[in-house]
Design a protein around this nucleic acid. Structure first.
Length: 157
DNA sequence: GCCAACGTTGGC
DNA sequence: GCCAACGTTGGC
């Protein structure tokens, strides 16, 4: 059996939230226009696990899990002059931007906030803190397990 | 809404 | 290939 890889993917809830993904079941992860994020996405395989992160949210944090349901294919929006994601240097023979499809798995019972992630010593090496603008990033298996365990932890205030 | 961080573009 | 200008991300 092949082990899945783990990822963190950011979305602004005002644009596309985990509730939207829950409603849709799955969605094409269109519109990524950062090379490193694209390269990570093209290396995703069906069955890989995804931490769904709400950025530009109050508070920002991980709100649930999802999975990769379709391998990367060319992003149609790069070819549409009307689209805000249009890229005049992309051609159908040589697409520049690719994306996978992401499927809903579950909401967490609570948000695991950025602040809480920062204060979890096992997560010190998360790219989230070092490369704050990278919207798709790999997560190692140990971190994945720490995070999914955190969601069951009861917060004392 | 502000602004620091940082990725991209394009002139040279 | 450098780097200034510019645009975007995303926390606060």
């Amino acid at each position: 059996m092949i082990e899945p890889a783990y990822w963190l993917m950011k979305s602004e809830p005002d644009v596309y939230s985990i509730d939207d993904l829950c409603r849709d079941g799955s969605t094409p992860w269109e519109g990524v226009r950062n090379y490193q994020a694209r390269n990570f996405m093209t290396s995703q395989r069906v069955g890989d696990r995804v931490l769904f992160y709400h950025s530009n949210a109050k508070p920002p944090g991980i709100v649930g899990i999802a999975e990769v349901v379709r391998l990367a294919y060319p992003d149609a929006s790069q070819f549409s002059p009307e689209s805000p994601y249009f890229d005049k240097k992309a051609t159908s023979d040589h697409p520049r931007w690719w994306h996978t499809d992401i499927g809903y798995l579950a909401h967490f019972d609570r948000i695991i906030t950025l602040d809480e992630l920062r204060h979890t010593p096992e997560l010190d090496d998360m790219l989230l803190f070092k490369r704050s603008r990278l919207s798709i990033q790999p997560i190692n298996a140990a971190m994945w397990h720490v995070i999914v365990a955190l969601r069951k932890k009861i917060m004392h205030r």
